[in-house]
Design a binder for these strands. Structure first.
Length: 362
DNA sequence: AATCCGGGGAG
DNA sequence: CTCCCAGGATT
């Protein structure tokens, strides 16, 4: 795994990012039940409930829980059946059992309070790296880095780090957060990271245009916000491809594939697979130069199309392009209208593009 | 390092 | 339908 290198420019932007996040959070934080009087107990329960569970799902469970179990002592005194009944429908029921165990430990050894010491806290059932740091920072204001799925994705995009968003990334992310974190307002700062991940920088369709740290976001500047991070779950290999719809007024350039191999003798728009550290526009310009031998004068993003094959999950990033160079027609190269294109056999992913082009070029 | 553990909601 | 979500424990 790549190691983190703090560049000088990042030191300059640190204070700017931190203050932007805090200001944005102050103005945009959702009012959530656990943010009212955030006692260590309430923060703890909310963090456990929110593991792999959406905010909307948790809200009614949290409210009910706090009515029936207003403090740690009441949790410890309840039976496991009562605890599990409260948890019914939330899933991951080991979480409820861990709360029950931890509450009993807190009552027996810590005067019925949530321990404020990191080394102690992380030994309790259900307190992993994330939850431990979340409780210490949000409930006690300690300077502890939290890395959840929101923070992971947000930081990967902020620094333009490509890769799969899994826990293998956490080492360098924590290292970066150690650098980034302020020494004041840790309660708000850590929550701002998660909040911006949830509201502005979600996995799909990030709202870069209204993002408070847009000017400091490397992914945005490289146009890679839809590429970072790669998701893991699928066994399918994920491929990002840049594809050029080169047109001269209403004629479009397509080319024929070789007689052997994948999609033999089929026609398609030129383009290819994005290489590491390459923006999609760079992919298109490179591929067109390699395949067609010309330079593009205009390259404008048009649409993204996802297509599944047996072993690949391909995201086709389509660019509308123009060129001042001459492209000669041949047996394997043609300039055709959208209507004429119906006669050319094309892979099905290209068919989706045709539908969009027919809408665009009325 | 992989796998298991739930369920609801969005697209 | 698939993907995603304030992860942790176990193997």
């Amino acid at each position: 795994m790549k190691t983190l290198e703090i560049e000088t420019s990042q030191i300059d932007m640190r204070d700017e990012v931190v203050s932007s996040l805090l200001k944005w959070y102050q103005e945009n934080a959702r009012t959530l039940p656990w943010r009212d009087s955030p006692s260590p107990y309430r923060v703890w329960i909310s963090e456990i409930m929110l593991q792999q569970t959406t905010v909307a799902t948790v809200i009614p469970y949290f409210s009910r829980w706090m009515i029936d179990f207003p403090d740690i002592k009441s949790v410890a005194e309840a039976s496991l059946d009562e605890i599990l009944k409260q948890w019914q429908g939330l899933g991951y029921y080991r979480r409820a059992q861990n709360i029950h165990k931890a509450a009993n430990i807190m009552v027996e050894y810590f005067d019925g309070e949530v321990p404020e010491d990191k080394e102690t806290l992380k030994t309790l059932p259900g307190f992993g790296p994330y939850t431990t740091a979340a409780v210490l920072s949000i409930a006690f204001g300690q300077r502890e880095a939290i890395v959840d799925t929101n923070v992971r994705r947000f930081i990967m995009r902020l620094l333009g780090r490509e890769g799969i968003a899994d826990s293998k990334q956490d080492k360098w992310i924590r290292e970066y957060l150690e650098f980034l974190m302020p020494y004041k307002e840790m309660r708000s700062f850590n929550q701002s990271l998660m909040e911006i991940g949830a509201l502005i920088c979600p996995s799909k369709t990030p709202k870069c245009l209204i993002c408070p740290v847009q000017k400091n976001c490397k992914a945005f500047h490289l146009g890679l916000q839809d590429v970072i991070p790669i998701t893991k779950k699928k066994k399918l290999e994920k491929i990002d491809a840049g594809l050029a719809v080169i047109h001269d007024k209403k004629k479009f350039y397509i080319q024929k594939r070789p007689a052997k191999g994948l999609w033999a003798n089929m026609w398609e728009f030129p383009g290819g697979k994005r290489e590491e550290r390459e923006t999609l526009e760079e992919t298109v310009r490179r591929e067109i130069k390699e395949e067609v031998g010309i330079e593009l004068s205009h390259v404008v993003f048009f649409s993204k199309i996802r297509h599944f094959y047996t072993h690949f999950d391909v995201s086709l990033h389509v660019f509308i392009c123009e060129t001042n160079d001459f492209i000669e027609e041949s047996e394997v190269a043609a300039w055709v209208s959208l209507e004429e294109m119906k006669k050319y056999p094309m892979p099905s992913a290209n068919g989706k593009i045709l539908d969009q082009l027919r809408e665009h070029f009325v």
